[in-house]
Design a protein around this nucleic acid. Sequence first.
DNA 1: TTGAAAGCGCTAACAC
DNA 2: GTGTTAGCGCTTTCAA
Lengths: 338, 338
Amino acid sequence: MGNRHTSLKDLARELKVSISTVSRALKDHPDISREMKEKVKQLALARKYSPNPLAMGLLKQETRMIGVIVPDLVTHFYASIIAGIESFAKEKGYFILLASSNESYEKEKESIENLLKARVEGLIICMSQETRETSHFKSLLAENIPLVFFDRVCLQDQVSSVTADNTDASKKITRHFAEQGYRRIAFISGPEQLNISRERLAGYIAGLESCQLPVDADLIEQCNLSHDSARQAMNRLLNLPNPPDAVFGINDTVAFAAMKEIKRHQLQIPNDMGLVGFTDEFHATVVDPPLTSITHPTYEMGVEAARLFFDQLNSKQSPKTVTLKTRLVVRESSDKAR
Amino acid sequence: MGNRHTSLKDLARELKVSISTVSRALKDHPDISREMKEKVKQLALARKYSPNPLAMGLLKQETRMIGVIVPDLVTHFYASIIAGIESFAKEKGYFILLASSNESYEKEKESIENLLKARVEGLIICMSQETRETSHFKSLLAENIPLVFFDRVCLQDQVSSVTADNTDASKKITRHFAEQGYRRIAFISGPEQLNISRERLAGYIAGLESCQLPVDADLIEQCNLSHDSARQAMNRLLNLPNPPDAVFGINDTVAFAAMKEIKRHQLQIPNDMGLVGFTDEFHATVVDPPLTSITHPTYEMGVEAARLFFDQLNSKQSPKTVTLKTRLVVRESSDKAR
DNA sequence: TTGAAAGCGCTAACAC
DNA sequence: GTGTTAGCGCTTTCAA
């Protein structure tokens, strides 16, 4: 695609002055006469001049691009976080280069390489659920490349990160169930290498204990966060000799899958089975019955991740850990009282 | 952020040869000796050399970036299309620069400018619903910048585009309702400047006529595609002296909003009121009752848009119009028979 | 007050 | 076979 953009050279030729004069005039260099500045700026406007970011990037060694890697591109959760990152980045004049790991460790590594080849200035990442090994992140740190994790994190002493208050939130859920009169509260967790699994499990247990409810290993299920795997987990719970009367799903997908499976078993929510998720506003209200849930401040999480990114970029500070407050919003799915 | 990437110069210096030798060796130029190629390639690997895309871009006048503008970043519909675009673009070694118009005409224009400043090689756009005026698109054409529309299109004789078979699909919906015994079939449309509104309306009317059902202007409502506005439209329908017994919602948001409003009025779906949407697989199955709908091939639409983009980029062909087949998937929300 | 020249990383035409 | 050079668009010394 031909060179359809006006360059400084074009302007210089047309005004019969040197390129450097044009360059200086455009940035109000004190050495340039008022009239010259006027002339140059006017022509630049007329010719729709805009500096070539490639040339600038080459010169200044900065591309104003941030690589963002998410486990998938299509769930509302990530989409909303991306929107948050994008809006903050735009303010700073940065663009986002987006990649999906598809929950695959290999693709995650591949995406990091690709983005670095594209010369992003740093990365904002939510780890794939397969990722158990962190050498690819460590080599970023070794090369001093700004890195921020969100939601799913690791190496927290070395990398800035944003998470929800997972433990606390999960504790609130368990206690809420208990208050509603539920006694056998199950938890469908995710892969144990993920901090969200561990933290939410810890909160779930702490909640049970604080209500003097027993912790029953049968009631703690695991899945790989896919819809099918979550349904199977729910199914196992329902087939228990002594099944639960309430379920806490670790995220959106899991909560939906559990809901479907509960309905398939002809059980009424919330009367036969209470259900609470860990999800965002949108999803919680679209299902039926509306889902009681910890609402995840997704957009804000994106904004915060971007903010941490620029902190890293501008001055290599020691890593920060931001924890976002969540809210328990009680809706029908756990509200026996109604 | 310092220069942490290895350059040809670095390699050349280390091997004590010229930069051009290194450059040629790396691309298997026939003039270079076998041993030299070996040596160079080995060192390049060891030093993790990758060509600087800024330098290449500057030289070749290509950035390998495509600008994509969508009305919003968070709905599953666009997310899925973006995933399709991304996957095709990645194959071709291109990156996506994403921007959202937030359904605003002004932001749409602004995004186009920003993306051009970032030197994208062309644009793939889904128009904002506010956009009635097309001069900003025409000036892209005038400057010979590759442009592709998807879903919401205009200037079809001048711009390549992908759409669903809107008219046909809507006709199928109306006929399906009629077959199920529904007689007063309503349609909640969107802004009339959008082709999707016009085409789906046309199909709806054609469907009614082919079933010898009267077209009742009272049953044709309009909204601005927001949740609230769709609910109000549904509410107006329900308050009609002679309300409908079935509703066709023009897209995801509208179908969900209608569903909520119907439930709020204590009506049973599908018995008191049939409901059909125009949405994707995911959303249709997450709600309750599962939504009969025209399933929109979103991912495929993204892939097709990208394919058209590269057609434009590689050779200025005359614009193509691709129409994607849709399927009517009958689920509970319109299935009186059950 | 303005111009010339070097250099960011790379390719390709032209030497030798 | 390999080296030299110019140039992509820009900023920034250094000269004038």
